[in-house]
Amino acid sequence: MTEHHTIRAADGTEAAHEARLMLTAETNPLPVGGIGALLAQLDGDTRVMLDDPRLAQIVRLRLLGGVPCWEVSYCYDRLTDGRLVEVDLEVWRLRPNYRIHLRQLCHNAGRTAEELGLWDAVSTLPD
């Protein structure tokens, strides 16, 4: 779909401008109120690294962008004691093929993406 816009320059002239409307689709969206429910459970005083042995299951990894890279918005994990905490992945930008990059980060931490349930927790929102 193409939309037409008129842009007025500083000197008062007008120019026709076409903008392509890009529809983006979030993957793995939370239900309405879902982020609020997560934040209500979050232990904001605790932040752990990916190699922390208490990590039990990644609950949510939110990635934004995609071009030229994905940016980590947040990553939350359920610890073995049941607390929900933020996970520091030590990187905030992931390569376009984020799955390979995340697999390598987990490997470097002595974990696997599968054992942490990472693939079910990833949510992407492209530019």
Results as ranks from 00 to 15, higher is better:
His17Met: 10
Pro96His: 08
Val85Phe: 01
Gly66Lys: 02
His17Asp: 12
His5Lys: 09
Val122Cys: 03
Val85Cys: 05
Leu39Pro: 00
Leu42Thr: 06
Cys75Gly: 01
Arg60Val: 01
Pro31Ser: 07
Ile100Val: 15
Ile35Trp: 09
Asp81Lys: 00
Val85Thr: 02
Leu116Asp: 10
Val91Phe: 05
Thr124Arg: 13
Glu71Phe: 02
Gly44Glu: 14
Leu118Glu: 02
Ala16Gln: 10
Glu14Gly: 07
Cys106Glu: 04
Gly33Ala: 10
Glu71Val: 05
Leu118Lys: 08
Val122Pro: 06
Arg20Lys: 07
Arg62His: 14
Gly12Phe: 11
Leu39Ile: 14
Ala37Asp: 15
Ala19Gly: 08
Asp88Tyr: 03
Glu71Ile: 05
Thr6Lys: 05
Gln41Val: 03
Leu63Arg: 07
Ser73Cys: 06
Arg95Met: 13
Gly65Ile: 05
Asp88Glu: 01
Asp11Met: 06
Val122Met: 06
Thr2Gly: 11
Ala109Val: 06
Thr46Val: 12
Gly44Met: 07
Leu61Asn: 08
Leu125Asn: 04
Ala40Lys: 05
Arg103Lys: 15
Gly65Thr: 05
Ser73Ala: 15
Pro96Gln: 13
Met1Trp: 11
Arg60Leu: 01
Val48Ala: 11
Leu50Cys: 13
Tyr74Trp: 09
Thr13Leu: 03
Glu114Pro: 00
Trp119Ser: 10
Arg93Leu: 12
Ile58Gln: 00
Leu94Asp: 09
Asp51His: 14
Thr24Met: 04
Pro126Lys: 00
Leu125Tyr: 10
Val32Ala: 11
Arg99Met: 01
Leu94Ser: 09
Asp88Gly: 12
Pro53Asp: 12
Cys69Gly: 06
Trp119Pro: 09
Glu114His: 07
Arg47Asp: 00
Ala19Pro: 01
